[in-house]
Simulated assay, not measured.
Amino acid sequence: MLLRRALVLGGSTEARLLATRIAADRRLWGVISLAGRTSAPLAHDLPTRVGGFGGVEGLTRYLIEERISHVVDATHPFAARITANARAACAAAGAPLLVLTRPPWVAAPGDRWIEVAGNAAAARALGDSPRRVFLAIGRQGVADFRVAPQHQYFLRVIEAPNAGDLPPSCEVIFGRGPFALEDEIALMRDRRIEIIVTKNSGGALAYAKIEAARALGLDVVMIARPARGDAAMTHDIDAAMAFLFS
């Protein structure tokens, strides 16, 4: 059997799990690519490249030059541009593509969700009256909330955002998950949070804030995932491994 050469577009827990499986399989050669948005990413079990490819043309060239046989897009569910580039590059290079992503969260009894399509809609959903807002969206996109400066924001990030992107009244809280439910409840009580803004990233590791909001009776502005085109998709690591031998 010819050695399969896999490119994993990473940045998610699913990507790390898949990398571990690929590294343990002698029938596979693999590399994982990270966008480089954090200066100290978590370690992976595959050789890792950091930084962009140079758009669709650069990624197409990489796939051809490295003789990549299969591509798994295991980026963050909101990495729409990377997914679009991967879809176009794989089509040009003739490499099959699979999107590996975690299932989105679904509202449970007791949840008070306001579902919106993007950051601009999320900022509008906060309303005109000043509120204490927990922003769990990461540092990218925080500038979109400058249009609603009447609110007090609490932004949790792994790395410092650009100061110019922050709304006028914004406390930056540093932390890398997963976070325990009791810690999320304590944080929201301590900051007297009235409403949460988050992306529907899905998965168990970031779910505690949703449970905390439910326990405290808080509204959650839930930003829906962007469309990821017509690429084949799975939520299952075993299915992703089977794809690499298809």
Rank of each mutant, 00 (worst) to 15 (best):
P41K: 03
A163H: 09
V31K: 08
L126M: 12
P96V: 03
V71T: 08
D238K: 06
A86K: 08
F53D: 12
L126K: 05
R67Y: 10
M188L: 02
W113M: 10
L34E: 09
L166S: 11
L28K: 13
M222V: 09
L218G: 05
A163T: 11
R156V: 11
L100G: 00
G58R: 06
A117C: 11
T75N: 13
P41H: 04
G10S: 08
L9M: 15
V56Y: 06
F179D: 13
D230G: 10
R49C: 03
A120C: 08
I137D: 04
A84P: 02
A122D: 13
A240H: 00
A213H: 00
D165V: 02
R131W: 09
R132G: 00
H235P: 06
G110C: 01
T75C: 13
I137L: 05
E194H: 05
F154Y: 15
R189G: 02
R27V: 07
G127S: 04
H76Q: 08
V142T: 03
S201M: 00
E14S: 13
T13C: 14
E159L: 12
R192N: 04
P130F: 15
V106D: 15
D219C: 07
E14C: 10
H235W: 01
E182R: 11
S39V: 05
T38L: 09
A204D: 12
D128E: 15
W105S: 13
S169K: 05
E65L: 06
A24T: 08
P104A: 11
E14M: 10
R49T: 09
A93G: 10
A88Q: 05
A224T: 09
P77N: 01
E115H: 14
R225K: 06
G58D: 06
L59T: 07
I158D: 10
P168S: 13
A186N: 08
A84R: 08
M222L: 14
D144G: 12
P77Q: 01
V72K: 07
D128W: 15
A239E: 15
N119Y: 15
V106Y: 14
R192C: 02
P41W: 04
A242R: 12
T20L: 05
A215C: 06
Y207A: 13
M241E: 01
L17G: 07
R102V: 08
G118Y: 09
M241R: 02
I173L: 14
A242N: 05
E184R: 03
R225D: 01
Y153H: 14
P130N: 15
P168E: 08
L187F: 11
A143F: 03
A35N: 02
I68D: 09
A242P: 00
Y207G: 01
L187T: 09
L7F: 14
L7K: 09
R131A: 10
L100K: 00
A123W: 10
C170Q: 05
I68A: 07
V72H: 03
D236T: 08
I196D: 00
V157F: 07
G229T: 04
D238G: 03
I173S: 04
P96C: 02
T75H: 09
D111H: 01
G217Q: 04
G203A: 07
